[in-house]
Design a binder for these strands. Structure first.
Lengths: 123, 123
DNA sequence: ACTATTGTATTATGAACTTAATACAATAGT
DNA sequence: ACTATTGTATTAAGTTCATAATACAATAGT
């Protein structure tokens, strides 16, 4: 797990989002136990309170739940994870297209630009 | 000009970004005078200090410059605007593809998903 | 039974952000 | 010359965020 944090948004929100993505992408398997708050905080080099806040935030999504003294676990509801992945992907795409649109790129322009950039990256 | 602000990031940063986009998209024409700080603040329903901070921030990009008492103006350097538009678009695309990738969608998957969503939106 | 580990709560401090209320210097327009 | 408008600066207050330093209750593991 590599933590990629900046100062553009609250750190706890960035952490919550990243763990969210890691669950959705399957990096964290359903039913798995998460490292402890203190350990995750150490890994991410943030205060335990900040990590706690991030995880509490994540809990509201239903993707994780805490078992008092045995730790925090990823949900085993694979359908839910799948649904969230689809929803989030759709949201990301709409948000992205909207931003491109506000720059003057219509969806078709955007698609072509993406393809152009992908071609360039291959070299 | 409709202002779309939320609490996820500093307001001044969101304003700076939106004006930036409006210049890049051509909504604000090169050489044009911007409304005054106080008027823009009233439009966006934020404090004049906040709008001032947003515009000062924008000035660092070189897209606008202030003329003491006659107001703030959009740069006339259309080449610069064009260049910034291209750069920003490329950045947005890369950032987007990276996020999709962290969710488990490879670029080709993402392209197909976008096309699927565009088809769905037509109906 | 004991102990370490778990999530959680509390209090304090400092920084960043936002609003508010003013004030000032420069100058465009009259 | 006068006046209103411009960008800009200052000071104060309140909120959110992050860190720090502890502390507590519950329980898994021994």
């Amino acid at each position: 797990m590599t933590w990629n944090l900046d100062s553009s948004r609250p750190i706890y929100a960035q952490i919550a989002e990243q763990v969210h993505l890691d669950i959705i992408s399957g990096l964290y398997q359903p039913g798995t136990k998460l490292p402890s708050v203190r350990e995750l905080a150490a890994q991410a080099k943030v205060n335990p309170n900040t990590m706690q806040k991030a995880l509490t935030e994540l809990e509201r999504s239903g993707l994780v739940h805490s078992m008092r003294t045995s730790g925090r676990f990823i949900t085993e509801d694979t359908d839910m994870i799948k649904r969230m992945k689809e929803d989030l992907a759709a949201d990301q795409i709409k948000e992205f297209l909207e931003k491109m649109s506000s720059m003057g790129f219509q969806p078709q322009d955007t698609l072509q630009l993406i393809e152009k950039i992908l071609r360039e990256e291959k070299s």
